[in-house]
């Protein structure tokens, strides 16, 4: 397995309790078990909370795609982040 994309969502009423970080850590652990090499996260550039979360989990910025989305009357930029895991192909 090579590359997967992670998604994390937390209920409004359960935020700011570290649940997002715990989920990201669990996803990373599972990805390591499954021998993934790269996890990609795509986060809307205005979503500061999620960006902080994935950066704290070790994801590195791979670039921002400008105005790639449109919602609620606004163009949205999307940050692409990636976490490279130290696994070997086929290993």
């Amino acid at each position: 397995m090579y590359t997967a994309e992670s998604s994390v969502y937390v209920a409004m009423s359960s935020r700011r309790q570290g649940i997002g970080a715990a989920l990201l850590a669990a996803i990373e652990a599972r990805a390591r078990e499954l021998n993934y090499h790269v996890i990609i996260a795509r986060v809307v550039a205005t979503n500061a909370t999620s960006l902080k979360l994935v950066r704290a989990a070790g994801y590195k910025d791979a670039g921002t795609i400008r105005e790639v989305g449109y919602k609620f009357g606004k163009w949205l930029d999307m940050c692409v982040l990636q976490l490279v895991l130290p696994c070997l192909p086929g290993g």
């Binding site: 791979a62 670039g63 990636q82």
Partner: peptide, 11 residues
Amino acid sequence: LLVGTMRESGF
């Protein structure tokens, strides 16, 4: 224009 590079995302 280059947005960025997804390092080692393919094999």
